[in-house]
C-alpha cells in the first residue's frame, strides 16, 4: 500500500477540465516527480491533494484512509506538507519566525494558555526555537535566521520555504517547483538536501519539477501530465526516452528539457 494514492481524480473549473481521471501512487521513502508542460494541471493536482480544491470525482487516500473530504488543515495534520509555486511564507516576519509559525501543529498548549503566558508555554517556545535552529542548520540557512523574509532574494526564499515546510514535520513532502529561480549550482545543492532528507529523516517526496537534471538525479519514479491527463509514467530514464513525452514537450512551448 502506498503512502499516497490518487485514484481517478477529476477536477473541472466551469467547463474546463484541469485534471481528468488522474491516478498516481507514492510509496513511502520514494521521491516521485510530477512533470508536464505549462498548463498541464500539475499545480491543480497538488491543490486537489492538499484540499485547496474539492475534487469532482475520484478518491485520494493517505496511508490507506480516504482524505478526499478533509479540509486543508486536517490533511496537514495527517502529515501532508507542501510548498507553493509562489512562496508560501508569512510576510513581514523573519526566517526564524516563519519556521516557528510552521510548527503550529506540534505546539501542544491552547491559544488561551499562550495568551495569558502560562508557565508551560515558555518551555515549549524554547523547544520550538531549538527545532527551528536545527532545521536552519540542516538546510544551511543559519545566516538568514533573523532576516525579514520580504528582504531576501528569491533563490534564498525558495530554500527558506523548504525549511518552513520541513518544520511542519511532514511525512509526505509536496514541493511545487523547488528549483525555480535557482542557479545550476544552487539546484545541485537542493538535490543534495532532498536526498539527505530522505536518508536522514525518512521523508517521502512528491515534487513538481521542470529541471531535468534534478529529476534524473533524485527521482525514483516520474509521472507525466499533459492536458490534465496522465500521459506516461516510469523511471526517469525511460521517461526521457518516451516518444509521447518528447512530443508533448515539443508541441507545447516549454522552459524545460
Amino acid at each position: 500500500m502506498g503512502l499516497l494514492e490518487v485514484h481517478g481524480v477529476t477536477k473541472t473549473f466551469g467547463g474546463i477540465t484541469a485534471n481528468s481521471d488522474v491516478t498516481l501512487d507514492v510509496s513511502e521513502w520514494e521521491i516521485v516527480g510530477l512533470i508536464g508542460p505549462n498548463g498541464a494541471g500539475k499545480t491543480t493536482l497538488f491543490n486537489c491533494i492538499t484540499g485547496v480544491y474539492p475534487i469532482d470525482s475520484g478518491v485520494i487516500r493517505f496511508r490507506g484512509t480516504d482524505i478526499s473530504d478533509l479540509k486543508t488543515h486536517e490533511r496537514a495534520e495527517l502529515g501532508i506538507g507542501r510548498s507553493f509555486q509562489n512562496l508560501g511564507l508569512v510576510r513581514g516576519t523573519t526566517v526564524l519566525q516563519n519556521l516557528i509559525t510552521a510548527q503550529h501543529m506540534t505546539v501542544p498548549y491552547g491559544v488561551m494558555a499562550g495568551m495569558v503566558g502560562a508557565p508551560e508555554t515558555y518551555a515549549v517556545e524554547r523547544e520550538v526555537v531549538g527545532k527551528a535552529d536545527q532545521i536552519l542548520n540542516f538546510t544551511d540557512l543559519m545566516e538568514y535566521r533573523n532576516e525579514i523574509v520580504d528582504d531576501l532574494p528569491y533563490g534564498v526564499l525558495k530554500n527558506v520555504e523548504l525549511a518552513t515546510v520541513l518544520a511542519t514535520d511532514p511525512q509526505l513532502l509536496m514541493l511545487d517547483e523547488p528549483s525555480s529561480g535557482l542557479s545550476p549550482t544552487e539546484s545541485d545543492r537542493l538535490g543534495d538536501i532532498l536526498l539527505r532528507l530522505r536518508e536522514e529523516l525518512g521523508v517521502t517526496i512528491l515534487m513538481i519539477e521542470h529541471h531535468v537534471p534534478l529529476v534524473l538525479r533524485v527521482c525514483d519514479f516520474v509521472y507525466v501530465l499533459n492536458f490534465g491527463t496522465l500521459l506516461a509514467q516510469g523511471k526517469p530514464k525511460e521517461i526521457r526516452e518516451h516518444p509521447e513525452v518528447i512530443a508533448a514537450y515539443l508541441g507545447g512551448e516549454t522552459d524545460a528539457a
Binding site: 492538499t50 508560501g88 508569512v90 513581514g92 503550529h104 511542519t168
Partner: peptide, 10 residues
C-alpha cells in the same frame, strides 16, 4: 499573509 499557507501549516 495567506490563508492557503496558514492552512498548510495545519
Amino acid at each position: 499573509s495567506n490563508e492557503q499557507v496558514a492552512a498548510s501549516f495545519g
